[in-house]
Amino acid sequence: MPNFEFPASIKSRPVYGRLEPRKGKFHLMIADGEGAEALIELAAADGALMAKSHIIYIPRDTGAGFAEKLTALGPAQLYIGPSYPAAVPRLRRVLADAHMGLQVYLTGTEGLMGQAMNEAMAAGIPHSAIQTEHRGSLARRMQCVHCKGITEDVMTDPFVCSHCGLHLFVRDHYSRRLAAFQGVRVDAEDPGNIPDPVELYS
């Protein structure tokens, strides 16, 4: 499946690339859903890579069929988990023991890449040294600027904050620290005047 071309945007919005093998003794790959396809292509680009790699994979709704293919790549370690939050303790344990020279590859949805990047940054890897490739769902992870609650997998603009219930419009302003875009009340200056939700990128 070809990568989605995100429209040109403001400078805080992440820009995703294509994963490529890098030099390093150890490689950590974190993916969800269709991100598995990017890992399969990465393995094809460098046959020796997988023997030094640890894959953390969250199939979500669309990735069940990839488990076998990822196993076939022969990674040094492979973890397939039910959700990103379930994988976090493992991820932190792996990063706590890691050394300089570790290469991190993130692929799949924006929410997965953003949250995993945050963990890698907290462990001491500069964000610009972490590779990303978007695959699969275009859903966004949104922070409500008013109540601070995070709404996962937002597909429309405006949307309803899953915490405080305000109708929020979707900004492109993005916080790496929160791994989220900013949602702001759409009817702040005219309460009750809420436009019909529109599918993102439509």
């Binding site: 890098r22 030099k23 390093g24 003794k25 300089m100 020279g101 290469q103 500069p126 610009s128 040294a129």
Partner: peptide
């Protein structure tokens, strides 16, 4: 350092 995979920023 680059050869051993150290990020430029470090």
């Amino acid at each position: 350092a680059a050869d051993l995979g150290w990020p430029r920023e470090a």
